[in-house]
Amino acid sequence: MPHVREHVLDGTHGTLAVRQWPHPAPRCLALLAHGYGEHAGRYGELAARLTGHGAAVYAPDHAGHGRSAGERVLIEDFEDVVTDVHTVADSARAAHPGLPLVLVGHSMGGLIAARYAQRYGDELSALVLSGPVIGAWELPGRLLALEEIPDVPVSPSALSRDPAVGAAYAADPLVWHGPMKRPTLEAFARTLDTVDRSGDVHGLPLLWLHGDDDRLVPLPGSRAGVERLSGGRHTGRIFPGARHEVFHETCKEEVFAELLAFLDRVLPR
């Protein structure tokens, strides 16, 4: 694994903990947006593949997640989270001016990344969405219809066919293992609608990665959202049997190969 550095930035709701996997002479910058309830530290292997391919990698813990400030998993407005990610991007560009920027978003991070591309797409060279919460995701509506949000955490077995992934997730003290919170669900619903109504990303190269056995963010709902976001112009790869976290799946070598080949096609040499 490459050496990881950590620093803090001022975010919209307090301090943001940011991990950085440096490269001595990067050819691009990669910005990672993690999913709900987790943290950027779970993306060390992805960062290693990217730094090995010439990227300097930056990844914040979103507000209320990991080592960043805020009530745990409370997000009242995803626009603020997008602004935080943009703050990290500005910091990365200041350290490495002139390099192309790639944004990789997983799950909730895919929703954040999609909205980021709508707001700041002219600053991106490529967008990668992994199991993205985009399009028709029914969970917020189902839970908000209930009088009380049930205390049902994410099932570790839904993440990957590799049992070690679920075991590490279950034992991780920086992962949230409690119930979802109503304001966060309401913010999900609003932002899904905002992304749906805010148009496509005007030809920005987009790679969509998804497992066809994703039980947390089902494939059909994401497909509809990706089609709208990309205007039908995207590269998609669906992995048979894979669950939600394709970067942690038993087929991860295929996933990494797909990602790196895409970057080679769309980034300037």
Rank of each mutant, 00 (worst) to 15 (best):
H7R: 15
D10V: 14
G11N: 03
G14I: 07
L16C: 00
P26C: 05
R27A: 10
A33V: 13
H34Q: 11
G35H: 08
E38D: 06
H39T: 02
A48L: 06
A48V: 05
R49V: 09
L50I: 08
L50C: 06
G52R: 04
V57L: 07
V57T: 06
G66R: 10
R67P: 02
A69P: 00
R72M: 01
L74F: 05
I75G: 00
I75Q: 08
V82Q: 04
V88I: 02
S91F: 14
S91N: 15
R93T: 09
R93L: 12
A95L: 11
G98I: 08
L99Y: 08
P100T: 00
G109M: 00
L111S: 06
I112D: 01
A113V: 06
R119G: 04
G121T: 09
D122E: 14
D122V: 15
E123M: 09
A126I: 03
L127R: 02
S130F: 11
I134R: 01
L143C: 05
L146R: 15
I149P: 04
P153G: 05
A158M: 14
A158S: 15
L159M: 14
R161K: 14
D162T: 14
P163V: 09
V165E: 01
P173K: 14
V175M: 13
G178A: 06
P179G: 06
P179F: 01
K181S: 13
P183D: 00
T184S: 02
T184N: 03
E186W: 10
A187R: 00
A189W: 07
A189I: 04
R190I: 04
T191L: 05
T191W: 03
D196T: 12
R197K: 14
R197H: 14
R197N: 15
S198I: 07
G199S: 05
L207Y: 06
L209A: 03
G211L: 04
R215M: 12
V217T: 12
P220L: 08
P220G: 12
G221I: 02
R223G: 13
R228I: 07
R233I: 12
H234G: 07
R237G: 06
A242R: 10
V246D: 03
F247Y: 11
H248R: 08
E249F: 06
C251S: 15
A257G: 15
E258W: 10
E258Q: 13
L260M: 10
A261L: 12
L263A: 02
D264Y: 10
R265Q: 10
V266H: 02
